[in-house]
């Protein structure tokens, strides 16, 4: 494993061009970590949804990409979306399918949760929002991929 794969990267989320860069970087890192095509697509799609939330609801912020491993040979990629926006008053409501405050389809947050293995939201009114997701690669048979 090269040091490149272990490097944490932080990207700005200030406009829709940044969203494209986020998608490209997430795809590239997921490929380097050996994720399959369906997993790459799920993670990139979740990243696109959550980065757009950071932009539209949080007024912009950043996303960090952190390769991780669980000691059992599983490689993972954690993405952390951080904004200093108004926060989410009712997370349970925001996670309901079809609930939208921005005129969208209301599937971004709830749908992203289904696309990844780990999902957590840290938010409070006036305190900004941090959404963290992790997708783990399947256990490699015989210790190799």
């Amino acid at each position: 494993m090269s040091t490149d794969e272990r490097t944490e990267t932080t990207l700005p989320v200030r406009n829709d061009t940044d969203l494209m860069a986020v998608r490209q970087q997430v795809r590239a890192m997921a490929q380097r970590l050996g994720f399959g095509l369906v997993q790459q697509t799920k993670l990139v799609t979740a990243a696109s949804e959550l980065a757009r939330n950071t932009l539209v609801h949080g007024g912009g912020g950043s996303v960090s990409l952190e390769p991780t491993s669980d000691g059992d040979g599983r490689e993972g990629l954690t993405l952390r979306f951080v904004d200093e926006g108004p926060g989410i008053p009712d997370v349970e409501l925001a996670l309901r399918d079809g609930y939208s405050t921005a005129g969208g389809l209301g599937m971004g947050l709830s749908g992203s949760k289904r696309l990844v293995n780990d999902f957590s939201v840290d938010t409070a009114p006036g305190r900004g929002t941090t959404v963290s997701i992790t997708l783990w690669s399947p256990l490699a048979p015989f210790g190799r991929r």
């Binding site: 369906v38 799920k42 389809l105 289904r114 696309l115």
Partner: peptide
């Protein structure tokens, strides 16, 4: 693409 179809369905779309 099949990977896009799988992802969209899981997303709920």
């Amino acid at each position: 693409r099949p990977s896009v179809a799988i992802t969209l369905v899981e997303l709920g779309l």
